[in-house]
Amino acid sequence: MSEHRAVVVDGVSKVFNRGTPRQVEALVDIDLTVGGGEFVSLIGPSGCGKSTLLRLVANLIEPSTGEVLVAGKDAPRARLDQEYGMAFQQAGLFDWRSVARNVELPLELKGWDGSRRRRRALEMLQLVKLTDFADHKPWQLSGGMQQRVAIARALAAHPRLLLMDEPFGALDEMTREHMQAELLRICAETETSVVFVTHSIPEAVYLSDRVVVMSPRPGRITEIIDVDLGPSRTVETREDASYFKKITEVREALRAGEDDRETEAVVAEERSSR
């Protein structure tokens, strides 16, 4: 049954530096399920634990409590089996490799032979419109172009699950819209599931089947909003009334998270003054 679920996060908490003065409760009691082929966005103010949640799913860090399953396996097994592709907040390209060879990196580690690697890398670069720059070095590219290379690298091995941490943050508006459309197309074609971190409400609404709204200190999920904009989103979708309605809904959910915190702060203050 869990085969249909790309990600299951069950009762997960994460505390950094436990028992030290720098202890941080980054995440508390997170339950989240991402179905096969589903696109889920995480949104919330800075420091609410979005990246932490993503890194837990990627098994780059271990949860303090709770369980993470990816493709029906526990997270460490899934990482070893290369069940996901990842794009980080920073491009993180290797200076000494050409653009194409950067995209080839995950394929190299999988043991693909040279010509097959090269072909796939060029395919991916075409997708992000960087074919002409295949033999350039990353540091000869602009920040936005570098980010597109990183996305091509994340997609290169055609993973069933994509974990993306603000991948489009550095792009200009036009490229951003183009990349969003491409990402949706690729995911629909290959039935890839996505967990997508963003700061942009319109982006979250446009891309997602569900938007997960989080609030900080401690990081938790305050609301999960279903977005149903239909299977094929076009340019018109961005001008549709239902689109704007969802944007408002997410914005209000975000604000509610903030208000909760303010109330809590007031209560705590009253308590301490008593």
Binding site: R55, A58, Q82, Y84, M86, Q90, G92, L109
Partner: peptide
């Protein structure tokens, strides 16, 4: 950079690789 080390970790790359 730590991010690159994490990237290699996400690829389940061996120490040697």
């Amino acid at each position: 950079p730590a991010a690159s080390v994490e990237l290699m970790r996400s690829y389940a790359a061996t120490w040697r690789a």
